[in-house]
Amino acid sequence: MNEVEGRGLCLHNNSNGNLITPSSDDDLRNVFHQIRTTKNPAVINYGASWCRVCSQILPSFCQLSNKFPQLSFIYADIDEWPESTQHIRYTPTFHFYRDGERVDEMLGAGEERLRDCLWLHS
């Protein structure tokens, strides 16, 4: 497991290499640029280390990244990257991207709902 930027949240092992956490606001902006230019499907999980619900869904998010290798999975902590995440008002928030555009949003947690959204957008 990799600790997320010293915040105490752990990203579980990902065998596909499709799970990342940006290291800065610039890095997160680069992720947005990559999503727009490569047009590969992606999901961004906006969370916070202090959010109990975020901590509960993060292991499922990591496990699901192994089941959906065609998707890019990104975890973005709203406290770590405040400039790039200032539009996020609720944690966790999941944004789904396809063909370089945001196509869906899921507020809150729920492993089954998340799995259904991932299946729909993969």
Rank of each mutant, 00 (worst) to 15 (best):
M1C: 12
M1E: 14
N2G: 07
V4I: 15
E5F: 08
R7K: 13
L9H: 01
L9K: 05
L9M: 14
L9R: 03
C10V: 15
L11E: 07
L11C: 08
H12T: 13
N13V: 10
S15A: 14
N16H: 10
N16M: 04
N16P: 00
G17P: 00
L19G: 02
I20N: 05
T21G: 05
P22V: 08
S24G: 09
D26L: 08
D26Y: 09
D27C: 02
L28N: 03
L28K: 04
R29G: 04
N30F: 02
N30D: 13
V31T: 11
F32I: 12
F32L: 13
Q34F: 07
Q34V: 11
I35F: 02
I35C: 03
I35P: 00
T37M: 08
T37E: 14
T37D: 12
T37F: 06
T38E: 13
T38H: 06
T38C: 05
K39L: 03
N40M: 07
A42E: 09
V43N: 07
I44S: 03
N45Y: 05
Y46D: 05
G47F: 00
A48Q: 09
W50Y: 10
W50V: 13
C51Q: 06
C51V: 08
R52P: 03
V53L: 09
V53W: 06
S55A: 15
S55T: 11
Q56V: 10
I57P: 01
L58I: 12
L58S: 05
P59Y: 07
P59E: 11
S60H: 14
S60Q: 11
F61D: 02
C62T: 12
C62V: 09
Q63P: 04
Q63L: 10
L64C: 05
L64F: 06
S65N: 04
S65M: 01
N66P: 02
K67P: 00
K67T: 12
F68P: 00
F68C: 06
F68S: 06
Q70A: 13
Q70S: 14
Q70D: 15
L71P: 00
L71M: 15
S72E: 07
S72N: 10
S72W: 02
F73T: 05
Y75P: 00
Y75A: 00
A76E: 04
D77K: 00
D77Y: 01
D77M: 01
D77G: 03
I78H: 04
D79A: 04
E80N: 11
E80L: 12
E80R: 01
W81L: 13
E83F: 03
S84L: 01
T85H: 01
H87R: 11
I88Q: 11
I88G: 09
T91Y: 04
T91G: 05
T91R: 03
P92C: 05
F94I: 08
H95I: 08
H95K: 14
H95R: 14
H95V: 07
F96W: 06
D99I: 07
G100C: 03
E101Y: 09
R102H: 02
R102Y: 01
V103R: 15
V103E: 11
D104W: 01
E105S: 14
M106Y: 08
L107I: 15
L107N: 12
L107C: 11
A109V: 05
G110Q: 04
E112G: 07
R113C: 10
R113P: 12
L114F: 00
R115Y: 06
R115V: 06
D116K: 08
D116E: 15
L118P: 00
L118H: 02
W119Y: 11
L120A: 13
L120K: 14
H121A: 08
H121D: 10
S122P: 00
S122C: 12
